[in-house]
Every structure is written in C-alpha cells, then in structure tokens.
Nucleic acid binder design. Structure first.
Lengths: 210, 210
DNA sequence: TTTTGTTTAACATGAATATGTGATATCCAT
DNA sequence: ATGGATATCACATATTCATGTTAAACAAAA
C-alpha cells in the first residue's frame, strides 16, 4: 500500500484527487492540506507518506520552498510537483530542490495514479512537455561545443590529461609517448587556442569553449 | 504520416520493429540499416525521415557519434536512442549530442509507437528509469553545493585568479599583495583541498566541488 | 587568556612548465 | 607527387610553480 499526501490550495481539485486516489486498492490518501505549513503540522503527529503531490502556487510558503523543508526532515518522501507552471525556471528549481517528478495539472486522474506507481518502481514521472524541456537543457550547450575546437583527437587527449591534473610526465606515460611529444602537442594547442598556460586550457575546456 | 528510420545491427530486432511500425497507418518505415555509415549512404539518395531510432552499440561508428553527424547534416531529424545501456555517461552523452529521447530495449512495440507519436507532439520519450537518472542529475549537485568549501574569502579570491589563468605574480598584482603571500595562500588551499597543483584546483573549482 | 585561524611576508630550492629550433614519418588531398 | 596537417621525438633555457621553514599582526573562539 502506497501512502500518498497532497498539498494543493484549490479545495475542489484537492478533494477530487484525494477521493480518487484513496479509492484505489493499492493507494491510500489520508492527508490533503492546503499549504506546506499545514502539512508540516500534520507530519508532527503522523507518519510521513511515501509520495507527496505538491502544487507550486500556495498560500504562505511556495511549493518549491516546501520541497527543501520536507526533504530535509523526511528525506524518504518522494515529491511529485503537480502544477500549471511549465516554465524552465520553476521546473529546474523544483528538481534541484529534490522533486522526483513533475506533472502538469491537465494530467488525468488515472495518469496521476500511474505516475505514483511508476515512482514506486524507481521511475520518474514527467509530463511529456516537461521531459522535452529537461532534455533541451542538455541539447543547447551541446551545440556550443561543436562550433569551435580545431583540436585533433590527440590534442584533445592531451587536454583531457591536463584537466585531470596530470603533469607532462604522467600524460606521456598515459599515452605511451615521450614527454617531448607532449610538449610539442601542448605548443600546438596553445597556438590554436591563443593561450599560454595550462590553466587557460583547463578553464576553456571545462567551460565548454573547446 | 510520420517517416521513421532505424539504425540497429541486430537483424531480427531491426526487421521486427520495421515491420511493426510500417504496418501502422500513421507511420511509415522505409529505411532500416545496420550501421550509421549505411544510413548516411541511404540519406544521400533519399529524403531524411522525421524520426530515427538509433542503437548505441553498432558496427563501425557508435550511435552516439552518429547522432552528431546526422544532426549536423539533417538537423530536423528527431533521434530516439533505443539501447540496452542505462549508465549515466551514455545517457548524458546521447542527450548532449542531440538525442530527443532515450528508450531501453525492453520497451514494447506499442510503447515505441507511442513514443514516436509523443515526440511528434513535442514530447520527449524516456523510459522511466532513464527519466529517474536525468532527474537525479539535478538532485545530486544541489546537495554537493551545501557541503562546500572551507576556503576563506581570500583563498577563494586566489582560486578565482588561478581559474582566470593568472600567474602568481599577476594574482599578487590584482590583490595588491606580495607574491610570497600568494604562495602562502596557495599552500593552504592545497592542504585544504588535498591537491598539489594549480590544475587540480581549477578543475575542482569549475566542477563546483569547491 | 591562551589557542586557533586568517592574512600578511621573506628566503630558499628542486620540479614542472613555456617556448624556441629542428627533425622524421605518415596520411590525405590537390 | 607535392604540400599540408598530424604525430612523433630531441635539446636547450628562462620562467613559473610547489614546497619547506619561519614569523608577525590581528581577530575570534575556547
């Protein structure tokens, strides 16, 4: 039996979801509060649920602030955001704060049920549009990496060695070449990148400018 | 009608998926190749598909390398990875390279169909376990930031100087202190971070481990 | 009040780095 | 087949870095 709790200020939505979930035979939903503050009050007297559905726009503390506090006191609670907001900042702030899923409010009741089960099985429920934004977060910086970098594969190897904090000697050992060869490559790398120190190469590399 | 292409080296899996997708009335699947090289050859003579299913382990070029090349030549193609690998590096490398979705190979044929439709509607198909790892990527760094840095403000100044690629002399000039003071700070920084080179400090700093 | 931590500073020395000059072999493309 | 880029290696040298030792002034903590 999965215990579910709800934090949602709209009374109609809250009781609708609560009644639907509670009538499922593998779920129970006892706690349905209208604010994070009320939920914290409730949790002082009761056992924490397995899963918590959380709105963002709430009276008092916001749902995003709530995530941090709930997760700190009850780290085992899995939190799913259930909200109308689909802007990147709210999504990423929620995930960084510790949310395990993010659903948009037009999600149907059976889909919410499915998401809760999904979470219990080690998944991470997300509305498709949300998943798209999360993935775009990886795509965009990826394009910058391609633009530049005239570095040859071998030169990139050497750069990786530098980033790993290796000395010329250790880089030479890693690739089984002489230290003078390492020097030669580094000369060329410096020329291509218009720099003249290890430090600048490492910084450029880790900032994705190579 | 959504045009789908497949790159998968296992002949059985490939033709099974191709036949299933091609029999759907809203999908067509003409191209099913066993390598990225073959697919590139095919695309010279034919129009690019809307969606491409791509394995990672392939003869010749890997699927992850393939993403970059395909997306560069045909940016409008949406690529879904379909693979047995669920390790974080492969997932993130794929997404960074430009993949729009990531499914594990145990995904059923109807679910693959659903994922393709999902993608056409602006979603991002992901197996639940994959979504979980992607979300954890946001969770973990948030916790590390809390631990952070026993470095004093002055020491952090020095670290910033190193990241900017300055020599000890230039750092001394920037903060109007002697070069021996810079040395002293750096000694303490090395001790606190358990490192013994500029390179490691820069790498740690830019990776957010300070 | 004694200890601990931060910031400042000097002197010394071996190790690592930056840079110049030159060379050979391979592969790819014009 | 000739030139260009890549990858390899050598020798030389000036600069920068890493590290040890020592120590003063000051502030915060025990």
């Amino acid at each position: 039996m999965i215990e579910v709790a709800i934090v949602e200020d709209n009374e109609k939505i809250r009781s609708l979801i609560q009644r639907y979930l509670d009538m499922q035979d593998n779920l129970s939903c006892e706690a349905a509060m209208e604010s994070v503050e009320d939920m914290l009050e409730y949790l002082k007297e009761n056992n924490p649920p397995n899963v918590m559905l959380m709105d963002i726009q709430l009276p008092g503390m916001s749902g995003i602030e709530g995530i941090g506090i709930i997760k700190e006191k009850y780290p085992e609670v899995e939190i799913i955001m259930l909200t109308v907001y689909h802007d990147s900042h709210k999504i990423f702030d929620s995930l960084k704060a510790g949310a395990s899923g993010y659903l948009l409010k037009h999600t149907s009741l059976p889909e919410i049920k499915e998401s809760i089960e999904n979470l219990a099985e080690g998944g991470a429920p997300m509305s498709p549009q949300i998943a798209r934004k999360v993935i775009q977060h990886f795509n965009d910086p990826g394009q910058k990496q391609k633009k530049e970098s005239d570095l040859t594969p071998r030169e990139q190897d050497i750069v990786n060695g530098l980033v790993d904090g290796l000395s010329y000697k250790l880089i030479a050992d890693r690739f089984d070449i002489s230290i003078d060869t390492v020097r030669a490559h580094i000369r060329n790398i410096y020329k291509k990148l218009h720099v003249n120190s290890k430090a600048e190469v490492i910084t450029k590399s880790l900032r994705g400018e190579i």
